[in-house]
Computed example of a mutant assay.
Amino acid sequence: MDNNLNSIVINNSDTIVKDWLEQVSKNRKNDYTSTISEELFESTNRQFVNVIFSSLEKQGISTELDDFSERLINLGWPLSYLTDGLQAFRRVTINFILSQSEQVDSEYLSEVLDMVDNWVDPIINQLVNEYSGSWEHIVSLQQVALQELSAPLIPVMENITVMPLIGTIDTERAKLIMENLLEGVIKHNAEVVLIDITGVPVVDTMVAHHIIQAAEAVRLIGSTCILVGIRPEIAQTIVNLGIDLGKFPTKSSLKKGFKTALELTNRRIVKSENSDEGIEKLLDSLDRE
């Protein structure tokens, strides 16, 4: 913005700020900020307009703008609050500049529009970049956390591990399950792996195919896979689809699968007055999980 227009805006900042605050408050009734407290909304608006004028005075992106956008990101405010606010500021500023001129021709109007755009657009671009970078970082962290939690292999006893599966299994997740399963079997020196599908809502041909592949891969490295948590409706679906799960043991519950795992590792439950109650509690807790 040239020096003349720049001076008009800065010298009349109080009036422009007042008009802008009225515009933003008017739009608040029906937008996402309606649930934010009045005190927080007003203080945030004041900070916002201050960093806008700071950018104008410095004729470029200010560090205050970076700090302000980072604060809003951490508070969870949407990017649209900033972009809408800047668009409102653009309109208020243009209207004010034009109101100060006795005669407005097309050339002057074009100059005002270009100058305001050249001032506001870099601020919008900077804010969008800040938010985009933050969102990408957050999504990346969430994806890593989800991958770590989506297919854990849990050692429950020497040579016996459990992989509880929860939610829908797609091709990408099936690949992750396979990788975690093979790495975990080797890491924990597992002879038996119990894959618990109690939390898998739907078992179709694709899901069954992925599970069979995982079990076959475990067999090839010298371990045994037991599929547990087969509910009646899943058993019926498997039969109707003609899926062959005969290559590895299947059990209806984790408790029954764990007993089989003990037998496969040459162990058995010995009942005694002291140990019987503890073993049953262990098996019951496994069944509930």
Rank of each mutant, 00 (worst) to 15 (best):
88 A>G: 11
115 M>Y: 03
90 R>N: 13
55 S>H: 06
68 F>S: 11
95 N>H: 14
263 E>M: 10
202 V>T: 09
170 D>V: 06
143 Q>I: 15
287 D>S: 13
93 T>L: 07
169 I>H: 07
5 L>F: 08
60 G>D: 02
6 N>E: 08
191 E>C: 01
281 K>E: 15
91 R>H: 14
1 M>Q: 02
216 E>Q: 13
78 P>N: 10
21 L>I: 11
245 L>C: 05
111 E>F: 01
118 N>V: 05
13 S>L: 03
176 L>W: 01
41 F>Y: 15
86 L>P: 12
130 E>Q: 13
130 E>G: 12
272 S>W: 04
245 L>S: 08
112 V>D: 02
105 D>W: 01
25 S>E: 14
286 L>Q: 10
223 S>N: 03
210 H>M: 04
205 T>L: 00
222 G>K: 11
48 F>I: 12
84 D>K: 02
80 S>Y: 06
135 W>M: 10
215 A>H: 03
67 D>C: 09
167 G>W: 10
207 V>P: 07
90 R>P: 13
255 K>G: 06
195 I>Q: 04
31 D>H: 08
88 A>F: 13
138 I>G: 00
228 V>W: 00
189 N>F: 00
249 P>H: 10
182 L>A: 02
146 L>C: 03
35 T>S: 13
78 P>F: 06
16 I>T: 09
207 V>Q: 07
132 S>F: 07
277 E>G: 07
254 L>Q: 02
29 K>V: 14
229 G>P: 07
171 T>D: 11
182 L>W: 01
131 Y>K: 02
198 T>V: 04
84 D>Q: 12
167 G>Q: 05
122 P>E: 09
264 L>F: 10
71 R>Q: 15
7 S>N: 15
1 M>K: 06
211 I>W: 00
268 R>V: 06
93 T>Q: 07
61 I>Q: 09
230 I>P: 06
94 I>E: 06
20 W>L: 14
32 Y>N: 12
241 L>V: 03
171 T>W: 02
127 L>S: 12
259 K>R: 12
224 T>H: 08
174 A>Y: 05
47 Q>P: 02
1 M>Y: 02
21 L>N: 11
155 P>L: 10
115 M>C: 05
42 E>A: 15
131 Y>T: 09
282 L>I: 14
14 D>H: 11
